[in-house]
Design a protein around this nucleic acid. Sequence first.
DNA 1: TTGAAAGCGGTACCAT
DNA 2: ATGGTACCGCTTTCAA
Lengths: 342, 342
Amino acid sequence: MKAMGIKDIARLAGVSTATVSRALSNPDRVSDATRAQVMAVVQAHDYRANSQARSLRVQRTDTVLALVPNLGNPFFSEIIAGIQDSLAPAGVDLLVADTLTQQARRQSAVSHLQAARADGLICLDGALPADSLADLSTPAMRHRVVFACEWPIGRDFPSVRSDNRAGMQLAVAHLLEHGHRDFALLAGPPGNVLTRERLAGAREALAQAGIDLPESRIDGHSFEIADGFAAAARLMQGPKPPTAILCLSDQLAIGCMSGLGRMGISVPGDVSVIGFDDIALAAYSSPPLTTIRQDRRGLGRIAAQRLLDGLSGRTTDEAPAPRPTVLPITLVQRGSTARAKR
Amino acid sequence: MKAMGIKDIARLAGVSTATVSRALSNPDRVSDATRAQVMAVVQAHDYRANSQARSLRVQRTDTVLALVPNLGNPFFSEIIAGIQDSLAPAGVDLLVADTLTQQARRQSAVSHLQAARADGLICLDGALPADSLADLSTPAMRHRVVFACEWPIGRDFPSVRSDNRAGMQLAVAHLLEHGHRDFALLAGPPGNVLTRERLAGAREALAQAGIDLPESRIDGHSFEIADGFAAAARLMQGPKPPTAILCLSDQLAIGCMSGLGRMGISVPGDVSVIGFDDIALAAYSSPPLTTIRQDRRGLGRIAAQRLLDGLSGRTTDEAPAPRPTVLPITLVQRGSTARAKR
DNA sequence: TTGAAAGCGGTACCAT
DNA sequence: ATGGTACCGCTTTCAA
């Protein structure tokens, strides 16, 4: 039993394929009687126009590709959900791929675009290989790409991101107010743009208070929870351990608190810990995590919206270097930070 | 600047389009010289065959759709990652949609299949509407669908799931061994098939030990962390509170422990808590969560593999009711369970 | 308002 | 081994 085609519907309704097509896409360009006739048949057989054929003809897929560093990481799923929020109402579908598997296949991350499978791309990975970036920079591709959360350093793509620097300044200010002077910092992956920004933000705020953050007080090589756990022990050894630990992600912070607890160190009694992201779990850790709230869903939502704008051509093409959209962040004070022990 | 077409490549290489097509898909059916000639041009212009056109012709999209209850829930992202594990090596792409937004659009959850956008469907939502289920039951669709994790009650679709009942029996046995006799249970959504299975498993194991689980000792209406937090208070009020709480998800368990902590109740000193899933976080909560490990990635991986098998026709069609693949679960003992206080 | 027919960009059959 | 060409299913002029 083959699937119904437009021809079958046309025959059954006693009209031409052109009329069926119009009845479906331009209902007002068909007489009421014919339309009813056609729709009846369509309904009866639950006919759905073949998407490939349609795309081929109209040169548009109504599909957008999201490129995620690692689909297994729950951090990104919330952004994806936000993307869906914007895409779904526009009748656009989402194709998801992660850069890990793509690289394994030795496939250009953008081949989907080139193969006309997707109209546009939302990239959550700031570390795309240079040749992919080059492909995306061509005039034909420029308005079909938006970066969300992360972004490639030194390239001018439209992007949506959180105010990472301001976030760390908020975090530092909060700790400073509570009398802390001895800081440590748990960083993410070295080359990562978020690591760079947040670290810079922290250093800046600390410097303003006349506090130096020596390399020996910086640890961490990923945003993962296990890394935070391991780093906790290293950070606290030595003669004069920090009283406050700035973590560049909540996962890092939660792992860190777990490690601290294992050593019998009390949070926030002995040391204060602050995170970044405000993932769902932060409110339920013990103690509940003080953190910098990042609107992940909004990130996705706005990125998708910008992409949609770009695709529909009503993008403001005047600016050669599109300004990034920067979303505000906020401090969420919970139980993992307190006044420094003197 | 339009994208290159096969005609352009053919002209540039001085051959016919047929030859270009062959050089790309059946390299051995073309002479070495011509192939080199063609490939040079292809490479030079980074030509990529239009996917829509190809799909239209070969009647295959090499794309699979995953239907997720809620993309924002990190629980599913790991399954999705597993799906990718199987799909990527096969050169199949993944299209993701969540049933929430689909319903909002009043669209049949399976319209993607009907529109020939995807060759097959992996459904993580056991609660599909009846009409969608009916659509999927047609002979044309039967071998294109696999359920993973959840499954629709009373329908015989191929499915991959964890051994939920055995999981709860493991949990109960563990607690029994530690001398617990007073149990409470935190359930997920009422209609959910996982709630049903796990609850049944718990009741069974409890009954074997001569222990009854009264309705008053059952709480919870979702798998979410916030629900566990709220339920904790309710569960512990009353004259003779439980000494052990069985949670049908880790999120529930973590929320519950958080709530318990807020009330000054010690885990596992006063009450033991056990979860289900073994999400990444479980190892880092305080105390670390004893839980039932479910191989989420494996779930996705095997489901995708079964789908691929079904699509390629080498499915064992003899069985009218395909046997579900049931993955084993294991108990992971950590710090949230201990001997019952007498 | 409706129908006939020309493609959209590939693939694969049939000749050569 | 290669080229010519019908066709995949739908949309969209162009005429009627």
